[in-house]
Each structure stands twice: as C-alpha cells, then as structure tokens.
Design a protein around this nucleic acid. Sequence first.
RNA 1: GCCGACAUAGCUUAGUUGGUGGAGCGGUGGACUGUUAAUCCACAGGUCGCAGGUUCGAGUCCUGCUGUCGGCGCCA
Length: 442
Amino acid sequence: MGKQHWVGEVRAGTHDGSEVELKGWIHRSRGSNKIWFLVLRDSTGVVQCVVKREDVGDDAFESLSTALIESSVIIRGTVETTDREHRHEVLVSSGEVVGPVNPERPFPITESAMSEADGGQTEFLLDNRHLYLRTGRMTTMMKLRSTVFGAIHSYFRDRDFIEYQAPNFVAGAVEGGSTLFEVPYFDRKAYLTQSWQLYAEAAMPALERLYTMAPSFRAEKSRTRRHLTEFWHAEMEVAWASNAEIMEYGEGVVRHISKTLLDERSDELSELGRDLDTVASYADSEYPRMRYDEAIEILQGKGVEVEWGQDLDYSKEKVLTSDFEVPHFLTHYPRVAKPFYHRPDPDDANYVLCHDLLAPEGYGEIIGGGERTWSETEILDRIEEEGTPREPYEFYIDIRRYGGVPHGGFGLGVDRVCAWLSGADHIREVIPFPRDSRRVTP
RNA sequence: GCCGACAUAGCUUAGUUGGUGGAGCGGUGGACUGUUAAUCCACAGGUCGCAGGUUCGAGUCCUGCUGUCGGCGCCA
C-alpha cells in the first residue's frame, strides 16, 4: 500500500517527533495569510496540520490553503505534541493537493446539514448518501457494523458451525406472500429470498450446524425506524436441537456481539453517545424467558386490549418491553399465529415451539426462531391447515422423507442489532445505502 | 394498504391580517502569524415543489398533483 503513516498512529503518539507522510482528505480548513490550519482526515481519524508560509513556500501555501473541504492531499511534516485538541499536530514541511474539489461544486454536506439532520435522515443527506458515508458519524457506524459482522462469524465458527449459502432467487415464500419481491426470471416469475431457512434445512442433514449472513428481501411498505426492504440476516440451523437449545445460541451470539463491541469499539460507542454500562449489561446479563401466555397476562394487567391468539404487534411489544432492562425471550406462541414450519408443541398442540427475542429500549424484535416441523405427516397437515400452495415446497417436504430429525434455528436482524447496540435513532443510520419502500437510490 | 405532517438560495432556515423574499453556513474577492463550526469587509447566488383558482395584488388563502418525512398493520 502506498501509505505508511496513519492519522490514528499520530494521535496515538506512535510518531511523536518523527517525520510522517500523511495521505488523506481535508476535513476542515482555516487560517490567515501566513499560517494555515488543515484538519486532515483519513479512515483512522482527524489531526490538525499546521502550514506556515515560511516553511513550505508560496506555491505550496497557496495550493494547500485554497483547497476546499474534501480535497485529497499528501502532507509531509513532523509530529509535535501539544496541549491543544487532539494532543498532536503535524508541522508541515511540504504537501500537495492530489484530487482537488471544484469551487463550483463544493462538498455539499455542511455543518448545518449535519447538525440539523439527526442521524442522516433528511432527504438531502439520503440523496447524498455516497458523500455522507465519509462523515465522522457514518464512518464510526460502519466500523461498529464491521465489528458486529465479525463477532457473528467468530461466534459460530468457534462453535464448529459451517457457513453455508442459499440461493437468493427462489420460487416460494417463507413469510407472507404479500411481502415478496417478484422479479422476471426469463419466461417465468421468481422471487427474492426472504430467508435462508428453507434451504438451510436441506443442508441440515449434511452439516448439522450451519449459519449464514446474507441479505433478505421483504416488500413491506413499512415506514418505521426498524424496517428495511433489504436487510442483513444472520441465520443458523442446528440438527437434533430443541427450542431451548436454539435460544441458548441466540442469547450467546447477542451477548458475544455486545462484548466484542465493548472490547474493540468502546471509543466509537462513546463517540456516538452510547453509555458503555448499558451495553455491558447486555453482554453480562442472562436473558429471561417468558411464555406468550404470561406476556398476554402482563399486557392485560396493564389494560392493553389483546386477545389470546393474536400475534404481538410492535405497540404491544413496546408496552411489554418498557419494563425490561435486558432482552427477553417470548416463547410458545399460539399455533394459529405462526407459519407452517413452526413445530407444534407435543405437550399442547395449540402452541408452537418458537421464540422471539425482544430488545429493550423500544428496538423491538431482533431474533425469531424455534423448532421446525420435521415429520412428513406433520408438515403436510400444517401446510394444508394454512392453505399454503404445496408446489413451491415439494423439496422442503421431501427433505423430511429421508431421515427427518428434530432441528431448529433462528434468524437475527443484523441491522436491528447494530441500531440497538449503537443507540441509533433509525435503522437507516447503521447501513451504508438503506433501502426502503420509497428509495433505491443512490 | 391506512393515518398524519412538510416542501423558501448548494445546505439549515426566518418570513406577522395577503402588500418590494431576509439571515447563518457554504462559494468568490480582499484583510489577518495559533485557528478550533476562526474572525472582519465586500460580492454572487431565489420560477418560494408543479398546475390551476380566489384577489387590484399570493411564499402566505383554496383545490388538485408530485415528492419527501413520521407513524400504523406485518416482521428481523
């Protein structure tokens, strides 16, 4: 790489008193006719560079001092310690502009746009998302996001899970048919996948423990702080596992993500205003289990109008989780509220062996999972009972004709977890190019 | 699909009973040897989302349209 020195190293004191060559972009620029201050940004942070006319000469002084914000530059100089902000400065000996910014089209994202925008939610910042990515807030979010992805991979790989990929063009739904994205597929129709699960179950007898992280697509017209039409889905499937065991993995991975963020990204969490003790409580606590029936009783006790058999919508989740300080599992939903692949409870067939993990602070459901219906007769009954067309699921039924075994898994909304743990106001803040029902550009 | 808001300069916005559209940031030119969203002076920049209507006169009132945002149902 044609770059040896990094701003983060300068800030850490690695190069105190030494010559460095910094390559980056102008974050801020100010000064007078003899001395100029360039705040230089690279992927590791910002540092102030002091350019004196007498040191660099008139030509370099003119080109550096007139370069606009987000011009790319190479700066050479000596690192000095200081009592000023950032504790370190670069006293510039020479430098040049690499990629200038045209004054007719200055960098459009101003301080006012940033400060009023509340996390990049204005139309303007969404239209300029390709430029918004390089702002401090979004850069920090992308680093946190990378750590979350890494933590999920390490959690499963450390437990001998095999990463496995399913097709994204599919013929059938996992969730409701109305949320399918239909795409032309030569002379037929196909759909974008809503979940890896059905194809994971096909590989379950081969791999026994498998996981993935991949995008899922749902054509929901939802406009909420928790929804995207394209979201990153961490899913896992385990042979011979019960609902309770699957929940152990769910709790484990969420706690592992929280701990990894604290270990590797505490500065970034603090930068975003996240209280580290709150995140630590998510890493250290056990997550209570609560049956659906208990949740209904609690809600009814609070005067919420809810009938047994209803799925719990967000407004009810919110009332329920308002007293929770850590994530809670909700288990044993009524059979009528859940799709065919959930396994009915052998102890009471009115319920299914499933679980949702509800995050506190109003972030809602972050995991949905459970045991799968695994015998041929039971899956056929469930499909018929639901009135679901059988054809797209023939392969899924066939799996059960050859050595079916109990198994289960879950899906975790990675973006939701990122939003929750970073304390973001909106799920859009944690993904570089958010997709919702009204936006596919840029 | 439903409910509710909003739309003024590149950005963030002010605009009073309807009476000549202002400012800050950003840009340009100038001043300034330690600035922290630097400061000071000057200049440029507007089809007030679009189309109708009411009126002597509409950024402002009315209707329609478009776009955007927030929320709901559903979900991760």
